[in-house]
Write a protein that binds this DNA or RNA. Structure first.
Lengths: 336, 336
DNA sequence: CTGTTAGCGCTTTCAC
DNA sequence: GTGAAAGCGCTAACAG
């Protein structure tokens, strides 16, 4: 194994000094080397199968050309477009994302950040932020640029790329109002994730303003996953008369809700109109296709990636807030 | 920023030599240091906020404690349990997975492998292997251990952790036969992914053996994604009379198929029974809930992670083939 | 038990 | 245009 070819080997092969090889092989400094020697060096490097040792380079330059990306749950396809947007922007600058997953666990979050800082990533993008993670992130930000993406963080000056959840919650309520609903409710996600807190506020506020009645469900999902959506629907059903319109804080939970409704013989949208959030690829193919709020994941990712570069380049950055949009499908209907 | 504290700083603070600090802070060699000095070192390291520089350590030891994990599509939740199994096993040994995504693109596959080798990962696990990637992987395997997971690779001696797709395809056919179906078909995934080729074989063989008729659909998904499933159903519908039983090569494509059937007024399972593959978390909540073949993703991941350690430890390894299992839900029914 | 010396593979001055 | 020398932060012999 390990027939590792070094700069030294190439240099000896060609009969020049290692530093000349280093120059010849770096696009930025190749011009400093005479055309003839350079092509001999390139040929030899190729022939010997030389691969630059990024680790060694990183030690010297102090940059690893990696960006740590912290994700909450890879099983939530909500993050996929974000990762794609991120990866595109990061690759565009010759850097590489290093992805890790917290499972929405605070301890793991902390360990992962430690790990990344130890690996000397050049920057960190947190797509998994919960309220309790603030101190850790601000700590990390003293060593390396930190960008908060997707999940907003309150009471901090860390740069953020997010989406207007308050407005998204409002859109859901508005849509139900337009359809003539009077009694509505929402099934909330974990409230220490700012997105859900804001969706809740935006929804409730618009509900009030439209003169609808909100049936308050005194429970929320511990994690924004399918099963929790199902659980909350059962809580709702035990409360008595169902609302005619229901906003579920994300699509995964909405799928769980849909499934339990189906089991229990509650028809969507005939008995209750259902709205999710995120517009996961799957939910347009659900039965009925889910009305939802589109989350601009790809853009969030791209902007976060770009923000990292701007910070690395020493440019000033401003927080970015993108717009959600309602996607009407078959899971909502007028009350008859 | 970068108030980077080095071993040197800690050493000076305590008044010992850097190598003593190095020893004191390494669990394996801490015993070599006198209890008193060690605790003084630990205290100082803590106080100064010392973090080991993994990059520098890697340069010295030749090990980066990272395992490159190559994934085809993070949007396919099929890979999530595999990643979890993998990550668990890898973390257990103090190593860290470094995840990258190929989008099932051969060029990107090659670039990613290059990148990983340049970053000197200690091993590579490929969960994205297509037939055309063999040379690249075997090349890489000369530098670093390579393990093939989930997607088998033919004609190679590289170690593999896979699942019996042939049997899985057989289970699907058998289930349809048991339900009394006579005319069946399959919608195939990309055939340069071995899994699909084997599912196809297993299905067809059992169909023949059971005396059923297979309607051959002369098209296959370019990529195993939702849209392709929908497209193939339209191809099937244009062929004339529908089969009563349909095996779709993965759940994502099955969801697309379900959706198009729904649009076209074809009822599942009344008109056609539908079977997918993988048992994604979502499909149990589809309408109707999807009958599918369970893919033991978590185990595949775990075994692959363990295999890496075994190889790194110089132990011999043998290929692992796990068993699929049929999960019967509401998308299949007896022909009446 | 601790200090010394080298050096991992590379880039980066500074000479020539 | 190229070579020489130093050093990134750490670990690994070898002394003492």
């Amino acid at each position: 194994m390990n027939s590792r070819v070094t700069l030294h080997d190439v240099a000896r092969e060609v009969g020049v000094h290692p530093s000349t090889v280093s120059r010849a092989l770096d696009p930025d400094r190749a011009a400093l080397v005479k055309e003839a020697t350079r092509s001999r060096i390139e040929e030899a490097a190729d022939r010997l199968g030389y691969r630059p040792h990024m680790i060694a380079r990183g030690l010297q330059t102090g940059r690893t050309l990696t960006v740590g990306v912290v994700i909450a749950d890879l099983g939530n396809t909500f993050v996929t477009p974000i990762i794609h947007g991120l990866a595109g922007a990061i690759h565009a600058e010759g850097m590489m994302p290093v992805i890790a997953e917290t499972q929405d666990d605070h301890i793991r979050f902390s360990q992962i950040l430690d790990h990344m800082l130890g690996r000397r990533v050049d920057a960190v993008i947190s797509v998994a932020t919960r309220a309790g993670d603030r101190a850790i992130l601000e700590d990390a930000a003293r060593l390396v640029p930190v960008v908060i993406a997707a999940r907003p963080l309150a009471h901090t000056t860390l740069p953020q790329v997010t989406q207007d959840d308050r407005k998204g919650g409002g859109l859901a309520a508005e849509h139900l109002a337009d359809l003539g609903h009077r009694r509505v409710a929402q099934l909330r996600g974990p409230l220490d994730v700012e997105n859900f807190a804001r969706r809740a506020e935006g929804f409730s506020e618009t509900v009030r303003r439209a003169g609808m009645t909100e049936i308050f469900v005194d429970a929320f999902g511990e994690r924004p996953v399918i099963e929790e959506g199902g659980r909350l629907v059962r809580v709702l059903m035990e409360m008595g008369e169902l609302p005619t319109g229901l906003f579920v804080h994300n699509d995964l939970m909405a799928v769980g809700a849909l499934s339990v409704f189906h089991e229990e013989g509650v028809r969507v949208p005939e008995h209750v109109s259902l709205i999710g959030y995120n517009d996961l690829p799957m939910v347009g193919h659900a039965n009925p296709p889910l009305t939802t709020v589109r989350y601009p994941g790809w853009d969030v990712g791209r902007r976060a990636g770009e923000m990292v570069h701007r910070i690395l380049a020493g440019e000033p950055v401003e927080n970015v807030v993108l717009e959600p949009a309602l996607v009407v499908r078959g899971s909502t209907a007028s009350v008859s």
